[in-house]
Amino acid sequence: MHFVVTIDNTGETFRCSDESNVLQGMEQLQRKGIPVGCRNGGCGVCKVQVTEGLYTKRKMSRGVISVDEEASGCVLACKIYPQSNLRVEVVGKMARAVLAQKSMSFDFGFATATVINQPDEEK
C-alpha cells in the first residue's frame, strides 16, 4: 500500500510504500528534500517532525532522538514506515542545507560546516 509524504519545508511530495521507510521511499524515486546520512538510525541527519499522519517505527539511536522527542513524533525518516499520508518537517542538523540545495547556492566551507553541525540534540 502506498501513501503520500509531504515535506512541509519545501512543499515536495512523494509516494512511499508502507514497506519502505520514508527516507528509502524518497531515495527510490530519486527525490531530495530530506537530507540523507547513514540511512540506518544512527546519525540523526534525517530527523523530521511528523506533523500529520500515522506510522510504525524501528529502533533509532538515543544519541540523536530522545525518548521525549520520539514520543512527540520527532523521529528519523529512515526508521518510520507510513501507515497513512504523512506530513513531515525536516529538523535534522542538515535542515539548513535543504533550503540551500533548493536555491542551488550550496557552499561548503569548514566554518559553515561547523555551524550547521552544532548538535542540537546535545544541549
Partner: peptide, 12 residues
C-alpha cells in the same frame, strides 16, 4: 575535489 556534507555531518 569537494567535501560532501555527509563527511562532516554524519557521525555516531
Amino acid at each position: 575535489r569537494k567535501l560532501n556534507e555527509a563527511f562532516l555531518s554524519v557521525f555516531t
